[in-house]
Simulated scan of single mutants.
Amino acid sequence: MTSSSDADPRLVASIRELLAARDADKTICPSEAARAVGGEQWRDLMPAAREAAHELVGLGEVEVTQRGEVVDVITARGPVRIRRAR
């Protein structure tokens, strides 16, 4: 399956790598991917990190949660977590 998204491929890869390094039931924060790619300038990458998570949701690879409930990362306000799709 492919995506037509304009998501930053570095952030998509970072999310995949971070989740692969964790136990299957663990989550990551989008900021972890932003930090891995952007270093000191990670905050500027937060919208792009959410877009990368959105692309991976569309591919069926991940789910985005807030307070343990699956949410739409595009409309969710506040902190979210990313986990492998169940």
Rank of each mutant, 00 (worst) to 15 (best):
T65K: 08
L45E: 01
L11D: 05
I28A: 04
R83P: 02
V37H: 10
I15F: 01
V73S: 07
E32D: 14
E40G: 09
A20K: 09
Q41D: 15
E51C: 04
G68Y: 09
H54E: 14
G78P: 06
A49Y: 00
E61R: 03
R10V: 06
T65A: 10
P9F: 06
R35M: 13
A76D: 05
G78K: 07
V70W: 02
P30V: 07
R50G: 12
I28K: 02
A52T: 03
V12G: 01
E61A: 12
S14C: 06
L19D: 03
G60C: 06
E55L: 02
S14Y: 00
A33M: 04
R35A: 12
P79M: 10
V80C: 06
R35H: 11
E69H: 14
E63C: 08
E32I: 04
E61Q: 15
A52I: 04
G68S: 13
V70Y: 05
A36R: 15
R10E: 13
V71E: 05
H54V: 01
R77I: 10
T2Y: 09
P47F: 14
E55R: 08
L19Q: 04
E55H: 02
E61D: 14
R77N: 12
A13V: 04
W42I: 02
P9T: 14
A20M: 09
E55D: 08
R16S: 12
A21Q: 07
M46N: 05
G78R: 10
V70I: 14
E55I: 03
L56T: 00
T65S: 07
I28M: 11
S4W: 09
I74Q: 11
A53F: 08
D44S: 14
R43H: 13
G58S: 06
A33F: 01
A20L: 13
M1K: 06
G39Q: 12
D44Y: 10
G38H: 04
V71I: 13
S5H: 04
L18M: 08
K26D: 14
L56D: 01
E63V: 15
A33G: 03
T2S: 13
A13C: 04
A21G: 15
P30H: 09
G38D: 05
S5R: 00
W42A: 15
C29M: 11
D23S: 14
M46Y: 09
G58A: 07
R84W: 15
A36F: 03
V57K: 03
R35Y: 08
R50F: 01
V62P: 01
L19Y: 03
R83I: 08
G39N: 08
D23E: 12
R43Y: 10
R43F: 10
A24Q: 10
S31W: 02
A7Y: 06
A13N: 11
R16C: 07
V62H: 03
I15M: 02
D44K: 15
L45N: 04
D23T: 08
S3P: 07
M1T: 07
G58R: 02
A34K: 01
A21H: 00
